[in-house]
């Protein structure tokens, strides 16, 4: 569906997107994840034909965006970082204008606008000037704009920025919903969001894709269940002694626990080693009761920081 090959974009001397290639299948929900200025928006702007790439090409359904921009643009609904809204129009008028721009035939226009307004939940405010709407509603009008004409591909740049938690959940559900009949690309620098919505995550930093996988695989593959958190009812010094006696542990960190008389320990073993049994027996042998033991799942947040900061060190 979407095929990007060796895409590079330079702004003067700054390389915003550096030789990235990827493919997106029909019906996937893809998340672009990266810190601010990583090149997410630039990539999206190239895919939507707003700016041109310096090198490489982007094919949408096999059509090059540079060669037949009008055809490709019809297939894409785009919600940029700042929703492009005409403040002096009402939401409904604005959507009419968008229909004009997208060449939606007159007879189906009214139904199309009603369908989209219902789906994003802006029917109540459709007669109000966009200028006077709250940020959440503006975002939704922006989303409605992208949905007009049922484009098979939706590209959403930070769709939940500036929304309150309730609205964020609403938009997430909507995106999940859209994923059923659209290919969705969304970007975010908030990891939990990508984790909640996307089937595949591409982590972008400094214009390069540094990882691409499902959120689950990213957390498991890369880091496994080799990290444990335990809470022990014993003295700190004694616990440290026990921990040291366990082979395979590379790293550990002991802290005063939250419970009185308990110590909490975070430990890390070599990759692909399961230390749970060894930990249990060691503490049992030392007669130090384990109050709690759980694996530390590395959140996307940590993976992200890890990957991106590793990049910085290079």
């Amino acid at each position: 569906m979407i095929q990007v090959e060796h895409l590079t974009k330079k702004f003067g001397r700054i390389v915003a997107v550096d030789d990235i290639s990827f493919r997106i299948k029909k019906g996937e929900i893809i998340g672009f994840l990266g810190p601010n200025g990583a090149g997410k928006s630039t990539t999206m702007n190239i895919l939507t034909g707003c700016i041109s790439a310096s090198e490489g090409k982007a094919l949408i359904n096999g059509i090059d965006i540079l060669e037949e921009p009008a055809k490709v643009k019809k297939m894409i609904g785009y919600l940029p970082e700042n929703p492009p809204l005409y403040g002096e129009m009402t939401a409904k008028e604005f959507l009419h204008t968008v229909c004009d721009l997208k060449n939606i035939p007159k007879p189906v226009r009214k139904d199309e606008i009603n369908r989209v307004m219902k789906r994003v939940g802006i029917v109540d405010v459709s007669g109000r000037l966009i200028r006077n709407l709250s940020k959440g509603y503006k975002q939704r009008v922006g989303l409605a704009q992208a949905m007009i004409g049922k484009p098979p591909i939706m590209i959403l740049d930070e769709p939940t920025v500036g929304l309150d938690p309730g609205q964020i959940i609403g938009i997430r559900n909507l995106i999940n919903d859209l994923g059923r009949d659209h290919t969705v690309i969304l970007s975010s620098h908030i990891l939990s969001e990508v984790q909640a919505v996307c089937e595949r995550v591409m982590i972008i930093a400094k214009g390069k894709i540094i990882a691409s996988d499902t959120p689950e695989n990213l957390s498991q593959h890369l880091f496994g269940s080799n990290r444990l958190f335990v809470s022990v009812a014993a003295e700190t010094a004694a616990v440290e002694k026990t921990v040291k006696s366990i082979p395979d542990i590379i790293e550990y960190q002991i802290e005063e626990g939250e419970e009185i008389g308990a110590v909490s320990v975070k430990m890390k073993a070599a990759e692909n080693t399961d230390i749970r049994k060894a930990v249990f027996s060691a503490f049992a042998a030392a007669n130090q009761p384990l109050l709690m033991m759980r694996p530390i799942d590395m959140s996307l947040e940590e993976i992200f920081l890890d990957l991106t900061s590793a990049e910085v060190e290079l």
């Binding site: 707003c50 009008a70 700042n82 809204l85 721009l101």
Partner: peptide, 11 residues
């Protein structure tokens, strides 16, 4: 208003 993107991304 950053609406130039709307025009540029429409056909």
């Amino acid at each position: 208003q950053k609406t130039d993107i709307l025009l540029l991304s429409s056909p």
